[in-house]
């Protein structure tokens, strides 16, 4: 028999980008332990709709952890407590009867809130548009096996390419930096021969765009990699800074001035504290 539980949900409600938001409390009964976290929200929304209240808007699509749509901070952690797991893959068996759960949107200047838990992540697309590609038109190619690529490099490229573009790294970062996202794309392409030709210009253009969008700088907190549902390695940021000889952006300059491989200060509270400091865009 599956267990059911009663939960108290504290959810960020915000009508639109231009209206102030606040945390609202909801009580939800009969939550089955086998439900996914988003199915639990579906149940809440059905209840709110029936009661004539406005349901909670949240982004979601594939519900199998690959599209990168879902974007919610659960109890202070992007995507919730389970490591390497998106919110849609989180199941209610993680919780117990009587728990209180807080749910908030990604918070970053470069991710303005659209409504409730839904934010605008167009800034990530614009970073890719600035240089996150190999400049090859359709059709002008050689046979796929003409360029052998060592298994190790191909596997490492795949490790970085696994990024789902959800933005959890930004949400987790005390500075709301997009270094892990950008580094993952750079890491994917720089590990492959196809990505070599444009390696330097790609980094400069992507980092410039990152700065323009209002993302912060990396100060080695490593929260990004910790929160990443695909567990992209923090080494991506090393690759980002080492892929160009002359980093000019404030982001990369800042990184250079700091000790490499700094560890997170264990006395510092986790990203939850940041939520109070960081303003909504």
């Amino acid at each position: 028999m599956s267990k059911t539980m009663t939960l108290t949900l504290q959810i960020w409600r915000q009508r639109s980008a231009n209206t102030p938001g606040s945390m609202q409390t909801y009580k939800l009964e009969g939550v089955n332990e086998h439900m996914s976290f988003l199915e639990m929200l579906d149940v809440l929304n059905a209840k709110l709709t029936k009661e004539g209240q406005d349901p909670v808007a949240f982004d979601h699509d594939c519900r199998e952890g690959i599209c990168g749509s879902c974007s919610m901070v659960i109890d202070g952690r992007p995507h919730g407590p389970r490591k390497g797991t998106t919110a849609c893959q989180l199941h209610m068996r993680t919780y117990k009867d009587g728990d209180t759960i807080t749910i908030e949107p990604w918070r970053a200047k470069a991710f303005p809130v659209i409504k409730d838990l839904v934010v605008d992540r167009g800034s990530l697309d614009r970073i890719v548009a600035a240089g996150g590609f190999v400049s090859v038109n359709t059709g002008v190619t050689v046979d796929a096996n003409a360029t052998p690529i060592g298994k190790k490099n191909a596997d490492e490229a795949m490790d970085y390419a696994a990024c789902i573009g959800c933005g959890a790294c930004v949400a987790a970062c005390p500075n709301a930096a997009a270094m892990l996202f950008t580094g993952a794309k750079v890491g994917h392409l720089v590990k492959l021969p196809q990505g070599q030709v444009e390696r330097r210009g790609r980094v400069l253009r992507m980092v410039e765009q990152m700065d323009l969008e209002g993302f912060g700088a990396c100060t080695n907190h490593r929260e990004c990699s910790e929160a990443c549902p695909k567990e992209i390695s923090f080494d991506a940021i090393e690759l980002l800074t080492s892929s160009t000889c002359a980093p000019r952006s404030r982001t990369t300059d800042l990184r250079r001035s700091l000790p490499q491989r700094g560890r997170r200060d264990p006395r510092r509270p986790r990203s939850r504290l940041r939520l109070e400091v960081q303003q909504l865009g």
Partner: peptide
């Protein structure tokens, strides 16, 4: 397959 490899799709090797 040729096109995708040229774009940098990291197929298994």
């Amino acid at each position: 397959i040729d096109q995708c490899v040229a774009q940098g799709v990291p197929f298994a090797r």
